[in-house]
């Protein structure tokens, strides 16, 4: 079964807001799996005998407390006779998703194309916290900005400077930052905020209470979904 010929891949771009921004990546996967089941999408399943899973590929996991605007997820369908009508399926899916997760755009992609996750090169975030712009300017003055992180129980330090591609303010309290993502030079927003507290004088409270929105995920150095955006009308 499950050969690439019989598969179709529908790439969805989703926004998550409100309470749904506060669940973990695994919960997000489960939420999509169940919504797709309710909406009767012919999702392809992995063939492991003991723990088969629906085939969903999220471009980039999103942390607890981070909203998204245009995050891509690939839904692998088993649809050899091309019977599935994407538009109808989307209407059902939108009705099946809890308030707070919204499909903003979609496209059908080639099942043989390079995996979505492997194409991720970066992500941009909008971080709202009082005084964040000033703290950013104080922190990133050209030299290395080192923060420590714990990975596999080993403590190491990382320099955030090469992980940030671009940053600009929208007024004094909003920072829009684009950084690396995925396998290389991944920029974690919690580490960035930690650096802004340590070196830029950002208040601890401001960092903890920051509103963080992932604006886009970059695929092959371009914001995913750019140009294909079909702002879907409400059902």
């Amino acid at each position: 079964m499950n050969t690439k010929d019989e598969q179709r891949v529908i790439r969805l771009y989703y926004e998550r807001t409100g309470p749904l921004a506060w669940i973990a990546h695994l919960d997000m996967m489960r939420l999509f799996e169940r919504a797709l089941a309710r909406a009767a999408w012919p999702v392809s399943w992995t063939e492991e005998a003991f723990n088969p899973r629906p085939q969903l590929v999220f471009a980039l996991p999103v942390g607890v407390g981070i909203e998204t605007r245009m995050d891509p997820v690939d839904i692998i369908l088993e649809d050899p006779d091309k019977e599935f009508q994407v538009e109808d399926g989307l209407l059902r899916l939108r009705a099946a998703l809890p308030a707070g997760v919204r499909i903003r755009a979609f496209e059908e992609t080639d099942p043989r194309a390079k995996s979505l996750m492997a194409r991720v090169t970066g992500a941009s975030y909008r971080i709202e916290a009082p005084g964040i712009l000033e703290a950013y300017e104080k922190t990133f003055r050209g030299g290395p900005v080192e923060v420590s992180r714990i990975r596999k129980k080993k403590k190491s330090t990382v320099d955030l400077t090469p992980r940030i591609f671009k940053a600009e303010g929208e007024g004094e309290d909003i920072l829009v930052v684009t950084g690396g993502a995925g396998s290389q030079d991944h920029l974690r927003t919690d580490l960035l905020l930690e650096a802004l507290v340590s070196y830029g004088g950002l208040a601890e409270d401001a960092a903890q209470g920051a509103r963080i929105v992932r604006l886009s995920v970059f695929l092959d150095a371009k914001p995913a979904g750019e140009g294909i955006i079909v702002e879907m009308a409400d059902a």
Partner: peptide
């Protein structure tokens, strides 16, 4: 969920 618009509430959740 208006509470989520308040920074202290978000800080608490984190």
């Amino acid at each position: 969920m208006d509470r989520l618009n308040h920074a202290p509430y978000r800080a608490m959740l984190r």
